[in-house]
């Protein structure tokens, strides 16, 4: 029997199986379709076969990175969560996925990667704490630049920057999108009957991070929590399909504590303290050398053997004679 396909994705937190929207979409779809994937949850994207997450390594050693490509591959392997959908329902599914990509995705990117307080306090911090040294120093910043570039392309605006106007516009679109999804879901358990489909996977992947993350600026979260059916929808999927992940994780407890106690819970605290001390020492030595406070002189051997006649400090006869 052939070995199962291997799925690499970001590790989970906040009671979610993964912190990444794309990874959540793929994980949810695989669960709904019953695909036997070997899931590898990692916190170093460079260990993924494609250099990014999610990534699926197939039996034939091909690598797929986009959620849509991974889902198409799973369908070809006869793991199809949309098997029971009519043509009309399939059309609706594609339409609502387009709606989310156009209206909700930009707001998600903004909330987690662009909004300054959320990015500094939650997103960058999470990735920096979970990535191995030294990647944690530069990868979160690079990821943010990529997300900003993605947002600019989605919005068709090259000079787009964080600001009140942009935030207002993005959150208005996202709020409208969530309301439309809520109206479409109604009082049903899933979007099309009693079994979940690819649309359910996409909706869950986009909404679960908003619902579960602890963000300082939680406007989007408030909007989602006001829609009871969508909140219950996400909670039900977590309970039914990801029961092991649906609990408070240690790092979540840490992040929900007051700011004063943050430093006591830093992972690898001792290593970071030593590293900081070495960097500080190096900086001080460099400064001392560059400013001439400390100088290193090369003294020749002969000079050491025959010391020159040193003039007494007090004698200034030559100078006085010149005057």
């Amino acid at each position: 029997m052939a070995a199962p396909d291997e799925l690499f994705c970001w590790e989970g937190d906040w009671g979610l199986p993964s912190v990444s929207t794309d990874c959540l979409v793929v994980l949810a779809y695989a669960q709904f379709a019953g695909a036997p994937l070997k899931v590898r949850k990692i916190s170093n994207p460079w260990r993924s076969p494609s250099g990014s997450l999610p990534a699926l390594r197939t039996n034939q050693k091909d690598t797929l990175s986009r959620p849509s490509d991974i889902i198409i591959h799973l369908r070809k392997q006869k793991y199809n969560a949309d098997y029971d959908l009519s043509a009309k329902e399939g059309a609706d599914s594609l339409a609502f996925i387009s709606l989310m990509e156009e209206k909700l995705m930009p707001a998600l990117i903004y909330t987690f990667w662009i909004e300054p307080k959320n990015y500094v306090d939650v997103t960058r911090r999470w990735y920096a704490e979970h990535m191995p040294f030294p990647l944690n120093f530069f990868l979160p910043g690079r990821m943010q630049r990529r997300q900003l570039e993605k947002l600019r392309l989605l919005r068709g605006d090259e000079s787009l920057e964080a600001g009140e106007e942009l935030e207002k516009e993005l959150y208005r679109d996202a709020s409208e999108c969530m309301n439309l999804l809520s109206q479409r879901l109604g009082s049903h358990k899933f979007f099309f009957g009693d079994s979940p489909s690819s649309l359910d996977a996409y909706v869950f992947g986009h909404l679960a991070p908003i619902l579960k993350s602890k963000l300082p600026n939680g406007k989007l979260q408030q909007c989602l929590k006001s829609l009871d059916n969508l909140t219950n929808f996400c909670t039900n999927i977590l309970l039914l399909y990801f029961p092991r992940d649906n609990r408070e994780s240690p790092s979540q407890k840490t992040s929900s504590q007051p700011e004063g106690g943050d430093f006591d819970h830093v992972p690898n605290k001792r290593r970071k303290q030593i590293l900081s001390a070495l960097v500080a020492l190096g900086a001080m030595l460099s400064y001392a050398l560059l400013t001439g406070m400390v100088s290193i002189q090369h003294v020749q051997q002969e000079a050491l053997e025959e010391p020159p006649d040193l003039q007494p400090i007090g004698s200034h006869d030559d100078e006085e004679g010149d005057g």
């Binding site: 609706d92 339409a95 387009s98 709606l99 990509e101 439309l180």
Partner: peptide, 15 residues
């Protein structure tokens, strides 16, 4: 529901 579906299809066409 119809309005939600209409708006979703508009995004599909745009997309």
């Amino acid at each position: 529901v119809q309005r939600a579906e209409m708006k979703a299809y508009m995004e599909l066409v745009n997309n």
